[in-house]
Amino acid sequence: MRLALLLLCLLVFAFRSDKPAYRLYDQKLKPTTYTRLLRQAAEADVVLFGELHNNPICHWLELQLTKDLYAEKKGALVLGAEMFETDNQQALSDYVQGRTTGKEFANQARLWPNYDTDYQPLANFARENKIPFVATNVPRRYASLVARQGLAALDTLPADTKRQMAPLPLTVDLTLPGYKAMLDMMGGSAHGGSSGSASSAQANPHGGSSDQAANFARAQAIKDATMAHFILQNLKPGQTLLHLNGDYHSKNFEGIVWYLRQQRPNLKILTLSSVESPNPDKPANESRDLANYVLAIPDDMTKTY
């Protein structure tokens, strides 16, 4: 009896001494496993990995999931990422297909400052295995244009340019919780409801206007809608498209998910949301229902930048 008690104490001590780099939870914050995540990801049409851009655990797990999905899907895997913009698709495809070198790719595409450490391993794995890689994000200059002038500013763009983004006119529902939170943060309001058109400026307590706040949310929406559009454009039956994006673009089943559902209500979508926590063994209750899977990471985890 004493021996059994001693062994139990040792096991408890060993468990408490463990310092996991991450913990995985399901939507209701019940502990789950990577094996289950992989199995369900392989059965999904689209997997949206909501990352924290400077978190090494996110980038490491993205690479592991890519490798394992490639093995599971026997080649029926497609990658997509917010980190590459649609007008750089040719440069990305040329690199992944082995037609250009890494140096040429860096000169041809607008790469994020942390590309070398965080995204190059994924691009290289795609290159080694000839995995299609989709640049899904709207070119940043057009998102910036919307943030400054609203969606109406896109109407004057040439037809070739418009093909680099979601089809216009774009429906933006500013009452969705994610966009509304952006408005509240900036002191704006969801006046105009789902309208994408501009309206007269209204003062807000931060010295700007509610139009400015709304246009900031619309700039987020043109990114979400464009990513959803190019995901669907590049997804074939039987494939799984693993998409990497900032957590805000897919958490709470909004953003990209909302736009995917508008076009393909029956699409099998799996989402993962990344959170930092003082204690990954006990994630905060507000992490509940963020996604199908919640990736809890210690909040003192080292950063990539």
Rank of each mutant, 00 (worst) to 15 (best):
M1Y: 05
M1C: 05
L5I: 14
C9L: 15
L10M: 11
R16E: 15
S17Q: 13
K19R: 11
P20T: 06
Y25S: 03
D26S: 03
T32D: 02
T35E: 13
L37M: 12
L38I: 09
R39I: 01
Q40T: 09
Q40A: 01
A41D: 00
A42Y: 05
L48K: 01
E51I: 07
I57F: 07
C58N: 10
L63K: 14
K74I: 05
G75T: 11
N88D: 15
K103T: 15
R110K: 09
D116F: 10
F125R: 13
A126Y: 00
E128N: 13
I131K: 01
P132D: 09
N137Y: 07
V138F: 12
S144W: 07
Q149V: 03
L154G: 03
L157P: 07
P158S: 08
K162I: 02
R163L: 06
P167L: 10
D173Q: 05
D173V: 11
M182K: 08
L183P: 02
M185V: 04
A190Q: 04
G192S: 04
G196W: 08
A198P: 04
H206K: 10
G207Y: 08
A217T: 06
R218M: 13
R218G: 08
A219K: 03
A219M: 09
A219T: 08
L232Q: 14
Q233T: 05
T240A: 11
H243M: 07
G255W: 05
G255P: 06
V257C: 14
Y259V: 09
Y259F: 09
P265E: 12
L267Q: 11
V275W: 03
S277Y: 00
P283Q: 02
P283M: 03
N285P: 10
E286M: 13
S287I: 00
A291W: 06
I297Q: 02
Y305S: 08
